[in-house]
């Protein structure tokens, strides 16, 4: 692996890594408010990408308008999921909640296949500008910079919201003690609905970011969701900084592995990384308060 290839792969890894962090943040947002891990998170990503393509092609909207519209639609779907599926099952065992979100994931991807067809689709690059030149022959696309910038900015905003606002505290209260939170007058359902909507929106943005880079189709949500989850676990479960670190790291590992072993094994590499980290350090690299608390 020459230095040039290394830098190229590293840049590609950083870009996909940033998107993985966005997906990871989606998991974290729901988990922090309800202790639910939404297995359908990857479907939000897929829907975000496919809806944008749909709006651009069907209604010939501009890139930005189509993106905003698809984020809105996916947010609405997030609200609906909380109302129709999660709320009636809130008091059931965890096993049942896990399978309900799994069922949701299958249902959404199946319906997406019906609406958008099964062929893989892609978006044109977000922006048509000459790539910035950095090291002699290696170029960075503006697109990569935009994606990394958007991800870091979103994660920072979410961090501020969850740690320094009333809403964030309410979210934490709902997840720690549902009954207690209701007793002090926190609208539990509303808080959970908002966090489902927010995480759907983040997922959709991640989808819009990733569709120009890789092909998206109805069943790519499961894999993307898994990678986001891996990122969240590798960095440290339940932490925004952990999601960012884990995502970038996972992207880099995955991308650089292409230089060493056949690219077909790329998915296996990231899941092996997940299994290894779960075995040797389940808290993740930065550690996780959420996990050590639940293990009491």
């Amino acid at each position: 692996m020459t230095f040039e290839i290394f830098v190229r792969l590293a840049i590609a890894g950083l870009t996909t890594g940033a998107i993985y962090s966005l997906i990871a943040i989606g998991f974290t947002t729901i988990y922090r408010s309800s202790n639910i891990l939404n297995l359908a998170q990857g479907e939000f990503v897929m829907l975000g990408g496919l809806l944008t393509i749909f709006f651009i092609h069907r209604f010939s909207l501009s890139y930005l308008a189509a993106g905003i519209l698809s984020v809105l639609v996916v947010t609405l779907i997030g609200f609906l999921i909380q109302r129709l599926v999660i709320k009636p099952l809130m008091d059931q065992s965890l096993l049942i909640l896990i399978m309900a979100t799994m069922g949701l994931s299958v249902f959404i991807s199946g319906s997406a296949a019906l609406v958008f067809g099964t062929s893989p689709k892609s978006l044109p690059p977000i922006i048509h500008v000459e790539p910035v030149l950095i090291i002699s022959t290696v170029r960075i696309n503006i697109q990569s910079l935009i994606i990394i910038g958007v991800s870091v900015l979103l994660i920072f905003i979410l961090y501020l919201i969850s740690h320094h606002t009333f809403y964030g505290k309410a979210m934490e209260a709902v997840s720690t003690d549902r009954l207690g939170a209701e007793l002090v007058g926190i609208p539990r359902d509303l808080i959970m609905m908002i966090s489902f909507g927010a995480s759907a929106a983040i997922g959709a943005i991640a989808g819009i970011c990733i569709t120009p880079i890789i092909f998206t189709q109805y069943n790519s949500g499961a894999i993307l969701g898994l990678k986001g989850f891996s990122a969240a676990v590798i960095g440290g479960w339940g932490r925004y900084s952990g999601a960012l670190t884990g995502g970038i790291l996972l992207g880099l590992i995955e991308s650089l592995s292409v230089g060493i072993i056949p690219s077909g094994y790329k998915d296996a590499v990231s899941f092996t990384a997940l299994l290894l980290i779960l075995y040797f350090r389940p808290k993740g690299i930065l550690g996780s308060r959420a996990l050590s608390e639940s293990r009491k």
């Binding site: 599926v85 399978m99 309900a100 799994m102 069922g103 949701l104 994931s105 299958v106 249902f107 959404i108 991807s109 199946g110 319906s111 296949a113 019906l114």
Partner: peptide, 11 residues
């Protein structure tokens, strides 16, 4: 339709 139907049945 099968995937959607499975998901609905499960939920």
């Amino acid at each position: 339709f099968s995937l959607s139907i499975f998901g609905i049945i499960l939920i």
